[in-house]
Design a protein around this nucleic acid. Sequence first.
DNA 1: GTGCCTGAGTTGGCTGTACAACTTGGTCCA
DNA 2: TGGACCAAGTTGTACAGCCAACTCAGGCAC
Lengths: 248, 248
Amino acid sequence: MGVQGEARYRQVAADLREAITTGRYGSGGRLPAEGDLAQHYGVSRGTVRQALAVLRADGMVTSRRGTRRVVLGAARTQSFAELLSFTRWARSIGEEPGGRTVAVEPVPGDPGECAQLGLAPGSSVYRVLRLRTLSRVPVMIERTVYPERIGALVQGFPIDAVSHTEPLEELGVLFTDADHTIDQWPADAEDARLLGCPPGTSLLRERRRTTDPTGVPVEWSQDRYLPGTVAFTVHNSVATTALSRRRG
Amino acid sequence: MGVQGEARYRQVAADLREAITTGRYGSGGRLPAEGDLAQHYGVSRGTVRQALAVLRADGMVTSRRGTRRVVLGAARTQSFAELLSFTRWARSIGEEPGGRTVAVEPVPGDPGECAQLGLAPGSSVYRVLRLRTLSRVPVMIERTVYPERIGALVQGFPIDAVSHTEPLEELGVLFTDADHTIDQWPADAEDARLLGCPPGTSLLRERRRTTDPTGVPVEWSQDRYLPGTVAFTVHNSVATTALSRRRG
DNA sequence: GTGCCTGAGTTGGCTGTACAACTTGGTCCA
DNA sequence: TGGACCAAGTTGTACAGCCAACTCAGGCAC
């Protein structure tokens, strides 16, 4: 049923997810009771509940005391990796990702950058500017700031490397948590030139701060998308909320 | 320590949250071991783990096998209610929310609307158009479609009602799950007139489909914000992901 | 000094049990 | 007919225990 060596509750969650996605449990229908699922999978009720918590976080099922769970439908959310990495995201939707590094420069970080990376003001950082494409069409400008330790690695990557995240992970850099802020921002001269749009065009902007499991920031990135190329989706519920709205 | 009558693990979570927010556990520092927390609060380790799962979902702490949890910082996420309701959100950030209903019309829903609300094509729905303000300044146009049952209630609300969500909840309408899609969209003539911006101005658009605990859609809304008035933030981690990126 | 190894400490995963809180459908009664 | 009530079913909360997997610092060998 599931991959061997993976946690039992993840196997159960994966099986239930597939059952919902393929329509075995129709949208709007009810899931079997936890006890029945436990018996069916040969695990304890606690393990089933762990599996169901995963599906609930993905917005695939509801849960309420006193009545069986309701199937909401197939998940529209992606894995953490697909959200973090433009490359992985593009592949997951069947597009051909591309990237061209426009500039990599080691510089003393400005106050804002150092604050985001948790460094002392004036610490040296690496600024990386990249143009990202889908099927060779430019869609996004990526401005990432790395702390020195990681930037030094990025500097060695080939100029036409499709992904930076993947080789960094292979070098042992861990990405585990990210904060995203989404708003819009007018294209500056550089954006306009690289994306081929008029200066001042309103771009969809995603700013992202990523940390490793010890809470140390590993990147601070600002991505600007051409209008109409991407949208962001979020699921939230009374049970779990990861989204918020802020004054712009 | 906590509110009486609320679940024990929520009380513990609330206490830990406050401890982190007020700096008793400094950002970047480590949390006590689960066992120690359990002893301190006089609960089992399982209950402590439940409390910590809440904080982890909020992005306040990390967790990794083998080592104590790391404090990431105060949460920036809001409650489900503050995200769902413009009124509650505005109040939570200390702004004065306002609303003016421009139009309420019972109509046969178009195919897209009916699909979003899970109704048969051509079912009657209510279209509601509202102008939302912060401190009397227009910031957002809200176009909401309700199924007939709920729209009939909304039709009775006063034209200058600040909130629609709150009275609906008092009438027993439950909002528990929502899917949000965020992108940008040019202002049409109506948007421009109401918001006082040139037609074609790029607006930050949030589309939202909200369901009740039985999975039945209760509203399908499209909100368009003036540039620079709001931003959306999301936290996600390898543990829990609620956000995704889509082709526009 | 350098690197390996071990062991204590810590979280992840799973089981089993018990009771509380709530929903739902049916029954009974006025 | 309508409403109150009840009982079965279901999920939420909490406890206790056990082992596995992993981190990390300190000791030890080279």
